[in-house]
Design a binder for these strands. Structure first.
Lengths: 143, 143
DNA sequence: ATACAACTTCAAGCCAACTTGAGGTCAACG
DNA sequence: CGTTGACCTCAAGTTGGCTTGAAGTTGTAT
């Protein structure tokens, strides 16, 4: 049993973010000391998982579908399979992008977008479905 | 030279999104036929690259730093190196997440968060810096 | 007992990344 | 020449994921 400030410290998540996650049902507190929330230790792993899934580009809603509201252990196998596959696709795209960037670093061609090697590297990812978008957000500041 | 509707069709990006990207300087049109924008073919590759970088979790601003405003071919080597490294980190995280999900699919433990194997898999990513957040956005709808 | 810090709630604010809508303009077709 | 429809601009709206701020409540230290 830990309180929100310790959980915040351990996880690097701001307290407001943790409260928000609780509000949307991603984590839960198991009681109060006075009015202060108390969390089980399990929550730490849960939070890491959430962070990880966000990195993968999943929305909080999708993450909820994956890991469920706490106390609900039923993760649907097919859903997980789909998510895992989606991640695989992303990994391959990122690998292409990384290789593309690394190539650009060493390529002296006038315009990289015209460099055949670059284009070939990029083509791997280019021929996939439609792109989504992703956005990095700021660091905790416990306000 | 292609117009916005064709570019939209080819790229899967909505026209409004393309206009928006032009507004923020990620792409540029090279003229008008009447008042209709005309784009060079090069733009297609550029757009794919943007989509890819978004998948990697970079903001439009960061992407601009990477690939520059069109016509500006100067990509700073050190910046690219940093981006490539960041992508590597992300890839490793995603790999962990994927493996974790795949394990959960085959694990009959009562609570996955308590499963030692799962925890070990997750630990890899857990011990990295701070998490960012990412968000998938919607598909083109050409409004 | 009183102060204080650390929490609480709730509503409002903020940012990126777009989308939507109203109203305007143009080229091409009949 | 007129109309049609695809584009245009510009402002405002939307969504997700939080943060911020004001005002209230506590356990603990003095």
């Amino acid at each position: 049993m830990i309180d929100i400030s310790e959980l915040s410290r351990l996880s690097g998540f701001s307290a407001s973010k943790l409260r928000y996650y609780e509000e949307v049902g991603l984590i839960r507190s198991v009681g109060r000391r006075g009015l202060k929330r108390l969390y089980e230790n399990e929550v730490k792993a849960r939070i890491s998982l959430i962070a990880l899934a966000q990195t993968a580009g999943f929305s909080l809603l999708e993450i909820k579908e994956m890991i469920g509201t706490e106390g609900t252990p039923d993760l649907k196998r097919s859903a997980l399979e789909a998510k895992a596959d989606a991640i695989d696709v992303t990994i391959r795209e990122l690998t292409s992008l990384r290789d593309g960037l690394r190539h650009v670093m060493n390529c002296t061609a006038p315009s990289h977008l015209e460099c055949p090697r670059f284009q070939r590297i990029m083509h791997v990812a280019l021929t996939r479905k439609r792109p989504g978008a992703a956005k990095r957000r700021n660091r905790p500041t416990n306000g």
